[in-house]
Amino acid sequence: MSTDSNVALEIQKQATEAHKRQNRKKSLSIFLFLVPAVIIYLIFILYPIIATFNYSLLDWNGMGEQVFIGLDNFKALFTDPAFWLALRNNMYLVLVSIFVQVPLGLLMALVILSSIRGKRALNVLYFLPYLMSAVAIGLLWVFMFDPAKGPINNVLNMFGFESISWLASNNIAIISVLIVLVWQFAPFYMILFKASMVGIPEELYEAAEIDGANGMQKFLNITFPSLMPTIVTSSILAVVGSLKTFDVFYIMVGGSSGGSTEILGTYMYRQTFVNFNMGYGSAISAVMFVIALASVIIILFSDSQRKKRGDLA
């Protein structure tokens, strides 16, 4: 009896041993497959991030002598009104992308998946802006918004409204750029939503129809909950994307307007490459990174909370 069980134990042991070995082999091959990606990640993502944090502790013009000054850059940054203004503008951008771009993308996806006429044409039309390069978009809209000869003002004049100096006056300038950003990025979210809507099982809708649900009820109880993961992904992309925004702002308003349309990206660029404050610019980048990271963590955390609640219910 006891020898039997010993033998059994022995066999079991050997089995787990072999299993372990196999596992190790497996993880080795997995690791080998990952190596190229990891190397690229380390060199092009992780190293620059660490380098940026390192630079942010220096008084450095980018070329000459590097002087270690500890957290002085950050101290200066947090008392710099231009930084807070840029941050505020970035927050507008975040809000607009989450509450305008993402819902608009959802709406557009609903439209092109519905059974209306000409949805194929709409599909192409909606997606076109996303295919254009940011430089082309920026220039295109600069001409659209041209105060003297631009089509937008011409249309306004046609209806008897006064011309608006779109990109010149401080508050309107930022709204103008936000309009363009919505126009540019809503199609991206549309594609995300469209892809995940196609994946919702048709049976759910059929069952709902049998139960007598109307269109709105179907949307609220089936489509919307099924899209929740996509909405979370979109929000993360929207937050991170709008914190990183640079190109269209830079082209349309030169990131200029004496700071009133400055965003973190353009302010960082100006400090680093125009004013030769590599250290200070890196401090701005570091803060941008921390904000983006924190936002992503918050969104993911609240999503996991939501899922837990969902499980309990």
Binding site: V142, F143, F145, D146, P147, S165, S169, A173, G254, S257
Partner: peptide
């Protein structure tokens, strides 16, 4: 010209 602060130089609307 109106809105001059929003008109870029390089793209040429000013010269136009």
């Amino acid at each position: 010209n109106p809105g001059f602060n929003g008109v870029p130089y390089d793209s040429g609307q000013g010269r136009q």
